[in-house]
Design a protein around this nucleic acid. Structure first.
Lengths: 136, 136
DNA sequence: TTAAATGCAAAAAATTTGCAGACGT
DNA sequence: ACGTCTGCAAATTTTTTGCATTTAA
């Protein structure tokens, strides 16, 4: 996936700050605003937090980014390119992607509520295997 | 469900503010902090916003409340008594409960990730029937 | 009686805004 | 050249904290 092309499609300018944000999120999978800011600052010390906020907002509005809202966690952002859900470890806070479909649940849900549904934000909560083995 | 009893079980004192918060959430289903504060203030003008925050936190910690984190929405709280998921309307912002199980998805997810999972936070996104009919 | 809860005010944290100058197209 | 984007500082908004006082148990 080529960020330059995607940005141009969305009529957003290709600035170094914007590219840095996208690359940073791509590299890490899921990041909060403050983490994005701090990580980019290591390479690009002049970037301003306001710029990060503004970019997250605009990238979010054109659907290049997606918010992840998980219980017990701060808001995080990920690239919006593929659809998936998440698991979160309640011990260590780790968040991971899981590529499963919830289509059957979505259609059951649609039947029950009369909503036209097209997406889901789902986070399964539990204990990761690392934490489970440490606990013993 | 009797809030007094539940609070005592959790060793929390039964104060009028706390009862007002629980009743308010029960009455409305899902509310954000500011809404809880404003609604209670109508009946109980002396309540302080800090008290609302402190109570939400303590009620949340003893599992009487649950956070709902939905994309595009502020954080809301609901009574934690029964397990269910949500649908959100992207047009009008309405949030509704849906009582379906995601057990099959949870076990698939557990198999794929080696997490021991026990809960899920899920919000299906789409358009409610009201908004769908208006759109025509 | 005593530990916990409240309300207030102040502090801290998170997010947004306005604007002049810089930069991508 | 034009309109967008950036960075800064200030303004807002949201959340937390400290503490004296009150209150439930």
């Amino acid at each position: 996936m080529n960020f330059e092309v995607q940005l141009k499609e969305k009529k957003l300018k290709v600035t170094p700050q914007r590219m840095a944000i996208l690359n940073e999120i791509q590299r890490n999978g899921h990041l909060g605003i403050e983490e994005i800011y701090e990580n980019i600052r290591k390479i690009y010390p002049a970037i301003s937090l306001a710029t990060v906020y503004k970019n997250i907002t605009s990238l979010y509005e054109v659907n290049l980014l997606r918010e992840i809202k998980a219980p017990y966690q701060k808001q995080k952002y990920e690239l919006a390119c593929d659809r998936h859900i998440h698991v979160a470890c309640e011990k260590c806070g780790k968040l991971e992607d899981v590529h499963i479909e919830l289509n059957d649940a979505m259609s059951r849900c649609s039947d029950m509520t009369n909503y036209k549904l097209h997406d889901v934000s789902a986070v399964f909560l539990g204990i990761c295997s690392d934490c489970a083995s440490k606990a013993k």
